[in-house]
Design a binder for these strands. Structure first.
Lengths: 183, 183
DNA sequence: CTGTTACCGAATATATTGTTCAGTATTATT
DNA sequence: AATAATACTGAACAATATATTCGGTAACAG
């Protein structure tokens, strides 16, 4: 990819995330984004069809980062997914959040954002699926599997939301403990 | 309130909810609303400052309906809130939903809507608070109360969401059972 | 019957979106 | 270093949506 393209793309993402920390996605205009990114209007539209596509692309990259790095760095795939407790994976995610790479927090807080949450959930769903056997023991047989899966994902998302909305005072370890307690 | 005002307000609410069942809140324009409601543009703006205020007002009335009727009709206040199990209240809510008064389902499904959900949650929170003692027994003492409360509310909301998104095939009784099982 | 209030609807200002295009700068290629 | 390809600029433009204004008309309350 051309360096110019990369730079522009980065600049737009940066301006976008800056704005996300100040206001809701729906309130952000393309005009504001290109001002912050300092790129021409036509340039924006040559990169992204619409503002929604920008968010989509942004999410895609973000989750690639979070969910894939998790498998590649240091301890490998098998190590994470084969350990007895599910703590490491969830804990790792929470630590990621605490660092607030890419202003992801703004998107996860209660004031925001539907579309983003849907992405987050669908990524989590795959993760939970691979970990499902770990929760199985506690699962009452009368609960249908899809419901059970949905519940675990929801609980995790809402736990994170609560954590963020309450100032992230607790450590990732404590939150993980809470999460495992209620699920 | 003037009969004309009431009529206009109703007409706008009706047009609005009709549209909500066909598309996302953000995609709905004021133009469409006043067309359906068959009222003048100026009239709309004399009633509601913006489209967001319309949603706010709509939510306010809706929850007044659901959460207050629940206390007034037939079996009274004390009966509902003093019974041993928490089933009746939650069950009652689910039955309300199944009837889909005011197209409330459209707002609760996954494709929709942030602002609405926040209202729903804050109303539920008050409800859960009054029922909290019923959940207390299962609560591990290490969990902080606000977290616990948030979890119950979240679980309820997400259970409903799951129900709706999956076609509401189960009866309200079954869903209530699921809910009580996992909480 | 009368004064008040709400509604109509068309015109208007403003803001945002998304496109177009000619000119300029940057990059990759040879 | 010269050339071709590609990306960016920025201003202009059409299209759409928002929100306000105002003179005229209809409905209401007392």
């Amino acid at each position: 990819m051309d360096r110019r393209q990369r730079k522009t793309r980065e600049a737009i993402f940066n301006g976008f995330t800056q704005l996300l920390s100040t206001k809701d996605f729906n309130q952000i205009t393309v005009g504001e984004i290109i001002d912050r990114a300092d790129v021409g209007r036509a340039t924006f539209y040559s990169h992204f069809e619409t503002k929604d596509f920008l968010l989509k692309e942004f999410c895609k990259e973000l989750f690639c980062h979070i969910f894939d790095n998790q498998n590649d760095e240091g301890h490998d795939h098998k190590h994470i997914f084969s350990c007895e407790s599910s703590e490491p994976v969830f804990l790792h995610l929470l630590q990621h959040l605490q660092k607030n790479d890419n202003n992801i927090l703004a998107l996860l807080s209660s004031q925001n954002n539907d579309l983003f949450l849907r992405y987050f959930r669908s990524n989590l769903e795959r993760l939970v699926e691979s970990q499902l056997n770990l929760f199985e023991s506690r699962k009452n047989k009368k609960l249908p599997m899809p419901f059970w899966k949905n519940h675990i994902v929801s609980t995790f998302v809402e736990t994170i939301r609560w954590w963020i909305d309450n100032g992230m005072k607790e450590s990732p370890e404590v939150i993980t403990e809470y999460f495992l307690m209620i699920v």
